[in-house]
Design a protein around this nucleic acid. Structure first.
Length: 588
DNA sequence: ATAGGGTTAG
């Protein structure tokens, strides 16, 4: 029978155990001493095999299957172990067995949280509902921890509505529950709702911690909400949370994505060398990249290596993005190859996309084509669409046709693609091609992404759509726009008439830039910004599509005529307009 | 003995 002192000693050794070989030795010893019959010892052993980093799930399974009627703790360990593994389905298999087969053991709050973790990974909404049912029938429906796990599980399975419903019904919500809700919204791209949660937290006097700030900052970054971002930064400073690396990293990203690279950089330098992690570096490098500062991206990449930090595949996306926007073809190609040769990373479809873009944007359409054809993703429409975009920039009919033909081969042609090619045809005065595209567009049906722009004025976001007549200050905006256009024109602006295709309804230019129209949304936002802010204030515009050529030129002349710096964040990069010049060097 | 919340790309 069990000797209490011996058991205690063995448990202690188990707790300090950090290698699997050692674990097995201890296990052998346990068996020799006859201690394996002691449920507390074998359960402990099982837990180590199942969840410790040096354990082994296969071994845990063997141990588990030898137990005559495992206690709840043992079930929990095995469910937990598999929920963290690559086969979360097995976690559910054990969970099901516990519910149906076990005579003795009942699931408890721990079992449910572990099972829910498995479902999070599996994307199985019905299973989530089923577990929810069991939670209620077993009487754990009011447990805060279980409810939080359940909320997250619903959210990760795509039902933010169920998640929110459950959250609102929770008898008690602690900070963890709030943070879970915020991060779920943020990760699902529902940024406005994430920010709404913050409003509610303030009204209900719930505090904030690093988790809340990180989630909220991520949403600010995505939508470009500098005002709220700055507020959160201030709170982080007041509470000392700025020293948290997660917060620091999120701040870098937020400032970079809101167009304040200088602030991003000062946060970066404020993080002590040794605390900088791969997120810190990646966020900064990507920040330079989307601002078109390829050389800075490269310089930081080299500093990162010098600091002994290993880059990952995300690092290269930022780096290649920078090279592409600055036209650093040779460097970009070199880094692309270094990924596999020096860093043992396999370029993914996005990296190939960067490479195609790098060549294509620079006008080397042959190389762009060759890249696609020799890549493992030559059957991915994304790459062909990039080539089509490059063909449009360089008005190249042959390569545009090639891209479209491949999109057809893949059955992936959209009306937007045809619009792009038709623009190329129109530019080349190739009327029969143009007519063919028009016909095709009609058969495909016209789908459109409506363009919008917004501008933040004293922490208030104002959104404009194409030919906006809905904004409350609409009249004022159009009046101002007239004046602005006059002054820009006397500074040298000439309106570039878009190719009019005369199609029914509105359409988007391959999801890239706005419909040809009398008035794109950013012009309205700019006019509004000029009317509502004092002389000299810089304007920040965020838009969902690419800037068109006319608006780009317009903004340049406005920045000169009104002596304002204007920052425009479009779908893929930043444009900083100062004194008639754009940071992109008209290369976008 | 064991639990629920965090950043980059897309």
């Amino acid at each position: 029978m069990l000797d209490g002192a011996k058991a205690k000693a063995i448990l202690k050794v188990l707790q300090g155990c950090n290698s699997f070989t050692r674990l097995r030795k201890i296990q052998a010893q346990v068996i020799v001493c006859g201690l394996h019959c002691d449920p507390s010892i074998s359960t402990q052993l099982l837990r180590f095999c199942a969840v410790s980093v040096s354990g082994s799930l296969a071994h845990a399974q063997l141990l588990f299957d030898k137990m005559p009627d495992p206690p709840t703790q043992a079930w929990n360990s095995i469910v937990r172990g598999f929920s963290q593994s690559h086969s979360p389905l097995l976690a559910l298999a054990y969970y099901n067995r516990l519910l149906s087969d076990s005579l003795l053991a009942r699931p408890d709050t721990f079992t449910f949280t572990f099972a829910l973790k498995a479902v999070e990974k599996l994307k199985a909404l019905p299973k989530c509902r089923e577990i929810h049912g069991s939670i209620i029938t077993t009487g754990y429906g009011r447990d805060t921890v279980v409810c939080t796990a359940l909320t997250r599980c619903y959210a990760k399975n795509g039902s933010l509505e169920d998640a929110r419903f459950l959250f609102d019904k929770m008898p008690e919500r602690d900070l963890v529950a709030w943070n879970a809700m915020i991060s779920c919204y943020s990760q699902a791209g529902r940024h406005e709702e994430a920010m709404e949660m913050y409003e509610r937290m303030r009204n209900e006097n719930v505090g904030l911690d690093a988790f809340s700030i990180v989630g909220l900052l991520s949403s600010c970054a995505h939508v470009g909400a500098l005002g709220l971002g700055v507020q959160l930064h201030r709170i982080a400073c007041d509470t000392g949370l700025v020293r948290n690396v997660f917060v620091g990293n999120a701040l870098i990203d937020m400032y970079a994505k809101c167009g304040s690279l200088d602030d991003a950089l000062s946060i970066f330098t404020g993080i002590r060398r040794r605390r900088r992690d791969v997120f810190t570096w990646n966020s900064m490098i990507h920040g330079f990249g989307v601002h078109g500062l390829g050389n800075d991206a490269i310089s930081f990449f080299e500093q990162m290596l010098a600091a002994g930090m290993r880059p990952n595949s995300i690092t290269f996306l930022g780096l290649l993005c920078g090279c592409s926007h600055q036209g650093l073809v040779r460097e970009g190609v070199d880094y692309f190859h270094q990924m596999s040769s020096k860093f043992n990373l396999t370029p993914g479809i996005k990296h190939y996309g960067c490479l195609v873009d790098l060549y294509g944007r620079a006008g080397n359409l042959d190389k762009a084509l060759e890249t696609i054809e020799t890549s493992p993703s030559r059957d991915d429409p994304v790459l062909w669409r990039i080539l089509l975009g490059s063909s449009k920039i360089h008005k190249n009919v042959a390569s545009g046709e090639k891209a479209l033909r491949n999109l057809m081969r893949l059955g992936a042609v959209t009306a937007g693609d045809c619009v792009l090619l038709s623009t190329i045809y129109a530019g080349a005065n190739y009327l029969s091609g143009f007519a063919k595209m028009r016909k095709l567009i009609k058969t495909l049906g016209v789908k459109t992404t409506p363009g919008w722009s917004w501008i933040e004025i004293s922490n208030q976001v104002h959104k404009f759509v194409v030919d906006d007549k809905l904004h409350p200050d609409s009249m004022q905006v159009y009046e101002k726009l007239e004046e602005v256009t006059k002054r820009a024109t006397s500074a040298g602006y000439v309106k570039e008439e878009p190719v009019i295709l005369n199609l029914p309804g509105s359409w988007s230019e391959g999801g890239c830039s706005e419909t040809p129209s009398s008035c794109h949304s950013e012009k309205l936002a700019i006019a509004y910004g000029l009317a509502r802010t004092p002389e000299g204030t810089s304007l920040r515009i965020v838009k969902n599509l690419r800037v068109c050529k006319d608006c780009h030129s317009f903004t340049k002349f406005v920045s000169k005529a009104f002596n304002r710096s204007i920052v425009v964040r479009d779908r893929v990069r930043f444009h900083h307009f100062v004194d008639g010049v754009c940071s992109c060097g008209d290369y976008w």
